[in-house]
Simulated assay, not measured.
Amino acid sequence: MMNLKNRNLNLPIAIISIAIPLAVAILFVLPKPDLEVGFDVKLMPFFHAVLNSATAVLLVASLYFIKNGHRKAHKWANLTAVGLSVIFLLSYVTYHFLTESTKFGDMDHNGIVDATEVAAVGGIRYMYYFLLLTHIVLAVVIVPMVLFSLLRAFQDDNARHRKIARITWPIWFYVAITGVIVYIMIQPYY
């Protein structure tokens, strides 16, 4: 692996941190291609929830490891969590490239949530949209935070790594957990 000790990677991290949400946003407005992918793409959100669950478990393990002085295990738990997050991102982008977004409360699966469906869902939709909104916003925010946390760790800048990791960990954990909760809440409408 290249020596990151004295490298300034602020610009590449900024570019990645802007490019990812921009690419995802563009996917939501592009027309969906008529492709046969050989499997039911409606299974992908479940896969995303599994990845988010595993990431949350790894983050808890990472915290446990560092609190108990197991630096190597801490490192591998975090690198595995990052790997799962990359797989999640690639799968998420693929899913939204291939399909229209599912609408919360769309009981008849026609792509429209009418007044009857809104009434049937009730006030739970406010909780769903709150969780979804905070999940999305913090998912954008967490990308540079994770990258800077990793960079500081690889640079052996432990003081700065700890400082940013104390903020990064709870946000990343929240994003992972809310990803699962949002999936559970919208799953009946796929």
Rank of each mutant, 00 (worst) to 15 (best):
V141F: 13
F46T: 12
L79A: 13
I124W: 12
N110C: 11
A153M: 10
L90C: 12
W76I: 10
R71H: 10
T102D: 04
V180C: 01
Q155M: 08
D156M: 12
E117R: 03
R160F: 02
V57K: 07
G179Q: 02
V86H: 01
Y64D: 08
I15T: 06
F39Y: 13
A165C: 07
V146A: 11
I142Q: 07
S17T: 11
F46G: 11
K42L: 10
N3M: 12
V50F: 10
E117C: 02
L27N: 11
I184S: 08
T94A: 14
Y189H: 00
A14G: 08
F39P: 12
F148C: 04
N78G: 14
L84W: 07
I66P: 01
A139S: 15
L30V: 10
L131Q: 06
K67A: 14
T99L: 11
D157Y: 06
P144T: 10
A77H: 03
F154R: 13
Y174P: 02
Y183G: 05
P12R: 08
A153I: 03
S62N: 09
D114A: 11
S149F: 01
A49M: 02
S91E: 12
G179P: 07
D114T: 05
L30G: 04
R160N: 14
V57F: 13
V140R: 05
T80K: 03
V93M: 15
F39E: 08
F65G: 00
L90E: 09
L147W: 09
L147D: 13
N78E: 06
Y189L: 00
P33V: 02
V137N: 05
L30Q: 10
F148E: 01
Y190K: 06
S17E: 11
L11H: 03
I184C: 04
V50N: 00
M145Y: 07
G179H: 04
L98P: 01
I112L: 05
R166I: 14
K5M: 12
Y189A: 00
L131A: 03
A153H: 00
I20C: 09
K75A: 14
Y92A: 07
H74N: 10
V29T: 15
S149E: 03
L22D: 03
A119Y: 03
G38D: 07
Y92C: 00
V143E: 03
V41S: 09
F173A: 14
G38E: 04
G69K: 02
L98I: 03
M127G: 15
Y126R: 03
A14E: 09
Y183L: 06
M2K: 15
V182C: 01
L133F: 12
Y189G: 00
V146Y: 08
I87D: 04
A139N: 06
D34E: 08
S62T: 04
Y189R: 00
L84Y: 08
M145I: 13
P12A: 11
V24N: 05
S149A: 14
